[in-house]
Design a protein around this nucleic acid. Structure first.
Lengths: 223, 223
DNA sequence: ATTTATTTCTTTGTATACAATAAGTCAATA
DNA sequence: TATTGACTTATTGTATACAAAGAAATAAAT
């Protein structure tokens, strides 16, 4: 794997915790590279806002509760718009991928009755696939580009989130409503459903921000 | 100036034309630096989508008509939301900056009756200040971050756009409506006015995409 | 004369080297 | 014991070096 994706994944999966300094030499050894390509990967992550400059070098960005709120507001704006546009612009191929992704999501949720880390990751992954299919159906590459950057931050938290059966069932239901709306070309219904859906996710994350499982990811206002 | 801003400005002002290869050695000499910091600046611009990778190295991104349409759709979504949020969250200080920016915009338009390049740049600059003040008043740092990236692309084109007196007058009127809506805390009015305003700008740019003045910036589907 | 093959040359990608600066350590003084 | 100050160490930021991969140019062949 290249340096960029290695570091990004490590941040998302919590291997590199918020606030942690990213030492170039260490990363270079871990990846059997020199410092040069490491520095370039870091510059990209900096441009995306996942890492922040320190006095010298960079550290993993520390997202506050306020950040999470703002990001979910932004994400709901972008993705609900995407859902609306998908209902207008989706092709038949899009519909097939949407259907497939949703069936997979359904299957993964019901096949993994015990909620261990691997299950959670599978659920998060198939959920992402459905959302990505929607954004892709909207037929706006720039929208896609920006959503993919916005979505990363919630990922950092969701990877450690313990969903309840009820939440997953509810999420699945809404997915089906969104799918139907896109299939039947009802942009307004798709948009509203997606908006509700993401705000539901936002509420879940915010309610559990103090949970033991993710508390290590969340350090309020470290200076 | 640092390498990042130097290259960015050069792209916006058309010194580096779309499709043009960015040779590291050349840039390094221009800025009296070694290749290392140049490469890092380029990586950042790549993450923002202003330059694209070639088989080897990078080139200035070539935006198509389709890109412009998509970007204006995205921008109108984001900025109209920002205007709405500004009408809710603006402080008294925000209001002062908003007022100042708008008065300056008015002044610059009327003081520069002959529309030479310097005047256009002054107009674009004061217009940006007003828009930035709105986004800032929305009190969402992540929204601000993404808008600032989205806005850059239209900048590439607007720097070379010859506005008519009518268009400027109209633009000024809408600015005043938006300002009033934000002042009076009318989010819906602010949102709609901003949406119209940006779609007006979009139409202006699209209508004139084939003009001689900007044709060198616009090369359809170069592969 | 045009196309293909081979060689040369330029430019990138990665590694290493060196200098500058922040951070860490230890000792001395209050 | 706490705090300040000088010294040492570690890590960054920039420059340079070298090897590999395209691009350009020249030569050969049909």
């Amino acid at each position: 794997m290249d340096a960029y994706n290695y570091i990004k994944e490590a941040i998302i999966h919590g291997k590199f915790e918020p606030g942690m300094r990213l030492a170039e030499e260490t990363l270079a050894k871990e990846l059997n590279l020199s410092r040069t390509p490491i520095r370039e990967a870091i510059k990209q992550l900096e441009a995306e806002g996942l890492v922040v400059p320190l006095k010298r070098g960079v550290g993993v960005r520390n997202f506050t509760k306020e950040d999470i709120k703002e990001i979910y507001d932004l994400r709901s704006l972008l993705e609900s718009y995407a859902a609306g546009q998908a209902a207008i612009n989706r092709t038949e191929e899009d519909l097939i991928e949407l259907q497939t992704a949703n069936e997979l999501y359904d299957k993964v949720i019901h096949d993994n009755s015990l909620r261990d880390l691997t299950s959670i990751q599978a659920i998060v992954h198939t959920n992402s696939r459905f959302h990505e299919a929607i954004v892709s159906s909207a037929k706006n590459k720039h929208l896609y580009f920006h959503i993919s950057k916005v979505v990363v931050v919630p990922m950092v938290f969701r990877s450690f989130y313990w969903y309840t059966d009820f939440q997953l069932q509810q999420s699945l239901e809404v997915h089906k409503i969104i799918f139907e709306a896109i299939k039947n070309k009802e942009p307004e219904r798709a948009r509203i459903a997606m908006h509700e859906h993401i705000f539901q996710g936002r509420d879940n994350v915010l309610k559990h921000l103090d949970d033991i499982k993710i508390s290590h990811l969340f350090k309020e206002e470290a200076k």
